[in-house]
Design a protein around this nucleic acid. Structure first.
Lengths: 190, 190
DNA sequence: ACTACTATTAGTACCAAGTGTTAGTATCGG
DNA sequence: CCGATACTAACACTTGGTACTAATAGTAGT
């Protein structure tokens, strides 16, 4: 079943998008066209060759300055971080995050945002949550944007106490105190 | 200034480590030896070629990106529940639940299992978590099965205190006390 | 001095996954 | 039927290698 050129090119784009590791040859077989056609398509769509694509993906991670944690291991989007000091993230509550019955956000999503922010804050390869005391102050509904602020407030050797407050607008909806464990004691700055 | 073979190889390893994007040619020029020598060194140290190195770096990130799926509706599978009394669920820790770096399960997944179990336990349309004090006792790794047991231990009008203990085998890995809020006071059973 | 051994270099053939270019065919619309 | 668009094919060249063979230099042992 042959597609038109346009259809093929749209699908080509998305296929390469979702799997950058695919070769022209594999694509040619999949679309039942010649490799040359695939190459022409890539030209027109200005999609670089396999090696360049892979290199690009590799460079992204490699040049990532955030040592403690890749950005996408975080629930919510980190918008500012000063390691071992403070961090801020935003999390947009969508339909999939709420109870169907009452449209209130499930607690674990708010927790996840706060927890992963606390982890991201710690300037250490191995940061784990040891304990936490949390409070869900107000229900959050779908469509709302939660801004979470984490602050390292105390160091006790391998433990760092992180305070997290999440708000919707001016309203605090969640607070928590996280007792974070790190693999090595924090180096005191001079 | 020529180094010995051993010196060169140690430095070669670290140079490639800190910059996987370097070619044999560049290394040869840096060490003032022939490319062949560099290749022999790589053989001996079993360091793969440039493209394989880059591919490896890229695959890591790519897997990380794919992994960042949202938390499901129900976390863990509830295998037994007696409303307002106790509930049990199991949760199999998969690769997507752990930190790539150290393969330890991210805290919010364990929290999510416990929290949703606590919610499920409450015999009420509108059950919300108000507060929680939790403790991550032992790291959980991918492949392990976490069994979570929730028990309602006290009722205070619209509040129900639920105690949750999660274990892998006989080992307790997580405990928490959840202060649950319900829309109506608990109906006394007859 | 002769031999053995290691380290290094050189050169060849080959590969994957391309680029760049030219040329030829097929198919469709007006 | 003509010409445009789409597709295919073929060839030379590129990068960054592998795999293999052969040659050379230096050093130590006996």
């Amino acid at each position: 079943m042959k597609r038109t050129k346009k259809e093929r090119q749209t699908e080509l784009t998305s296929r390469i998008q979702e799997n950058p590791f695919v070769t022209d040859d594999e694509l040619a077989k999949f679309f039942e066209v010649s490799v040359q056609t695939i190459r022409l398509d890539r030209m027109e769509l200005s999609i670089p060759e396999l090696r360049e694509r892979i290199k690009h993906v590799a460079e992204q991670t490699f040049e990532d300055e955030v040592r403690s944690l890749p950005i996408d291991e975080v629930i919510g989007e980190i918008i500012d971080v000063e390691l071992d000091d403070y961090a801020i993230s935003i999390f947009d509550v969508q339909n999939e995050h709420v109870f169907q019955r009452n449209h209130i956000a499930r607690g674990h999503h708010l927790f996840a945002q706060a927890n992963s922010l606390a982890v991201a804050l710690i300037n250490d390869d191995l940061a784990l949550t040891a304990k936490a005391a949390i409070e869900f102050c107000k229900p959050v509904h779908s469509g709302q944007r939660v801004i979470s602020k984490a602050k390292a407030i105390r160091n006790e050797g391998r433990r760092t106490i992180v305070e997290v407050k999440s708000s919707v607008g001016k309203e605090v909806v969640f607070k928590g105190e996280f007792d974070m464990y790190r693999s090595s004691a924090k180096k005191e700055e001079d």
